[in-house]
Design a protein around this nucleic acid. Sequence first.
DNA 1: ACCAATGCAACCGTAAAAGTTACGAATGGC
DNA 2: GCCATTCGTAACTTTTACGGTTGCATTGGT
Lengths: 134, 134
Amino acid sequence: MKRNSRLSLALHTLSHMAGSPDRLRTSSDIAEHAGTNPVVVRRVLGKLREAGLLTSEKGHAGGWRLARKPQDITLADVYLALDERMVATDETKETPTCSVEHALHERVSGVLEEIEESLVRRLAETSIAEVRGA
Amino acid sequence: MKRNSRLSLALHTLSHMAGSPDRLRTSSDIAEHAGTNPVVVRRVLGKLREAGLLTSEKGHAGGWRLARKPQDITLADVYLALDERMVATDETKETPTCSVEHALHERVSGVLEEIEESLVRRLAETSIAEVRGA
DNA sequence: ACCAATGCAACCGTAAAAGTTACGAATGGC
DNA sequence: GCCATTCGTAACTTTTACGGTTGCATTGGT
């Protein structure tokens, strides 16, 4: 795959599952559809399970299922479940020389943080059901 | 550096230059401030020059200067100048098996494209002057 | 002529992520 | 109880993006 593949894979898979929410799917099936392999699928979907968007069952008739109705899963849920932070800079070790520089740096970081938040708000406006349906 | 460093470097540099817009700065000076090296600075600032946000002069007393007033440079200008596409997936070679899959894929891409556009609109609401000033 | 600066191309090093293999644990069918 | 199936996870390899580095041509002021 390529860039942004986790979010893309997650969205694609969830949208697909939204088509028949009761059906149980294996990571192999999903990997087939997504053109990748089962382990990668399990890695990504594992994050979604941690966030309560999916459930998984082991064993013979195991697989994955939506934990909520498609209209109750927003893109923000997915984005946050994957720990994505596309805009904001996770800076924890910045040590600019003078305090003026430091202040400016804080400004830039703060602005990017605001942009990140508005991105999440925008993502929260769309549900998986909407992706599929219209 | 780390992730998102191009945008971060560009924003930081422009905000800094906005402090005294008439002053000419060398890529060495800028690199010093940003904790990186001159070539990287020229690479990033070169994109901003192509987009008309900065001017550069070669030769002995050469360097970089803002091409516009800080209040006339928005974060969207910078983002687009750097060819960043943080949300949208640049897919040009997708060949899902069946047409149903294909349609769904288009849907997901389309939604991400919309999100990308709203991100740019959000970025356009803030100018470099605002980053610095408040 | 000299020096200081950009412009640019070619390379190296590294870090993040996908891909792969392997194996253990759980679960249901027989 | 046995066995196939599936998830869970760890370890490793491969790929890729990008910052960093070096070198050199070009430009322009002194």
